[in-house]
Design a protein around this nucleic acid. Structure first.
Lengths: 264, 264
DNA sequence: TGTAAAACGATCAACGTCAATCACAAAGCG
DNA sequence: CGCTTTGTGATTGACGTTGATCGTTTTACA
């Protein structure tokens, strides 16, 4: 049995039952426990599942499944890349930390990997706030403002806000584009909101899949010098990677990305 | 059976029945009492449930009246009264208006009646914000702060907030009690949050069923002179009604189907 | 209010699972 | 043909989980 076949089988069983045991997989596939464990580790790296003692469970196996409908379009495109990036970002989080998540599809994926964490999370994304409040023990803080349904974002044109008292060690940010000019957004209000959030964080970690490296948009949120880390996928252009590194930006590549539903 | 399977099972039973016994879990899962106790301890650590002697109970008992821990049962008894009051309040709303809803069970009922409206709504209740965003065309504004799961309320100890720029014609308020001293809450932070909201509204409409007229609680949110209208049910004591009217407060009685709880 | 029963937390040994490492086999490539 | 790469299975020490037992606390009932 090929590696792909096994992993596809694992995902199928997960979709059916929500949870799988290593021992069962051994019995079904005939492979050794070591091989199955390796498969599970790879699948977890891509964000396709979450390992637990004795097996693995579906990432969406929570109770209430109120998935953000507004992400439908952008969710299907590059969903697996974003899952892998989100899983990598979540693995950098430690209990007790204070973090910031901006509104974005990749950060929303990330929020789903934070169910077992116990942190203080500031986010201007309404769906992320809902997700964390309903399905995690994290403390959730939101800025004041109007809730925009379509974008799922909480926006305010004013400066006064309770989040001025928030202090985070790191902000995880999903953006419109990343160019040598810096972090790019297309909407002025969104750019301003993200700049406000950014001012409350020490370090900045960007969650950008490799399609975000084309120059586009027009609002610069912050320069590259503000960026501590970029989490992307192996599709990042070599020139961009070199440029980022030369600017002192740490570049992490989420694993996997090669396994897909080709056999499905 | 895997640890996660047991925990999922526990949460499912909790969602169905609201309370679980350790002995029952032993019979269902086949695990030992020690293991089940450990599971309950872990789940309590994540905030998924609350342990009680002999088992555990659901932490989210529906839309709870935030400052009434001992009144959990009464909310179902008064559900019809509150529904009638909420419907009456909703009928006072006109499209295009700006209103404020505080966090409370009666205001939550009211939000259900606003699905067809098109207003600007400021609320510090997270469930109400969810309801209006998901099921209405109203514009929704929230204050900044931490989201408290149990109470479903957004609270901030700071003064700075984007809602300082909000202007509403009327605030609909559900409170802990209403006495000749004024509007009463039991929690200082909640009282402060409601006072902040109130400062953004011209008129104040109280949504209080007739059980709220007993003196209790200790934090005065505002005096009776600030109250424009009280919407209650026919169970309101005659003395209280006369006193309110003598203070210039308009008293509306929702056409409740039941009118027997006045002496209870 | 006093007593018995039930439930509780802490502890420990037995067992299962985990990650790391090594050795081997098959496929890819010069 | 020789070399590297990749996938695989077995071994080992570390770690997490489990169930039994103990002494203590809480609850129920007379």
């Amino acid at each position: 049995m090929l590696e792909r076949e096994r992993q596809q089988l694992i995902l199928n069983r997960l979709k059916e039952r929500g949870i799988v045991r290593v021992a069962d997989l051994v019995a079904v596939t005939g492979a050794s426990v070591a091989t199955l464990r390796r498969d599970l580790a790879k699948l977890e790296d891509t964000g396709a599942l979450r390992r637990v003692h004795g097996g693995a469970e579906s990432v969406a196996s929570g109770q209430s499944e109120l998935t953000a409908p507004t992400f439908g379009a952008s969710q299907t495109t590059n969903a697996e890349l974003k899952q892998a990036i989100a899983a990598k970002a979540a693995s950098l989080c430690e209990d007790g930390a204070s973090i910031i998540l901006n509104a974005g599809s990749t950060t929303w994926f990330m929020a789903q990997h934070l169910r077992a964490h116990r942190m203080q999370v500031l986010t201007n994304s309404f769906p992320i706030a809902q997700e964390l409040v309903a399905n995690s023990a994290n403390r959730v803080v939101v800025p004041g403002g109007e809730i925009y349904r379509e974008a799922g974002i909480i926006l305010s044109p004013f400066d006064e806000d309770a989040i001025q008292h928030f202090a985070a060690s790191v902000m995880f940010m999903s953006c419109y584009a990343l160019t040598p000019m810096g972090v790019i957004e297309s909407d002025p209000l969104v750019a301003r909101a993200e700049a406000k959030l950014l001012s409350r964080a020490e370090r900045l970690v960007l969650l950008v899949d490799s399609t975000k490296f084309e120059a586009r948009g027009n609002m610069v949120v912050c320069p590259l010098s503000r960026v501590s880390t970029v989490i992307t996928d192996p599709g990042i252009p070599r020139a961009m990677e070199d440029h980022l590194r030369s600017q002192g930006v740490e570049v992490l590549k989420a694993a996997g990305a090669r396994l897909d539903l080709s056999a499905a």
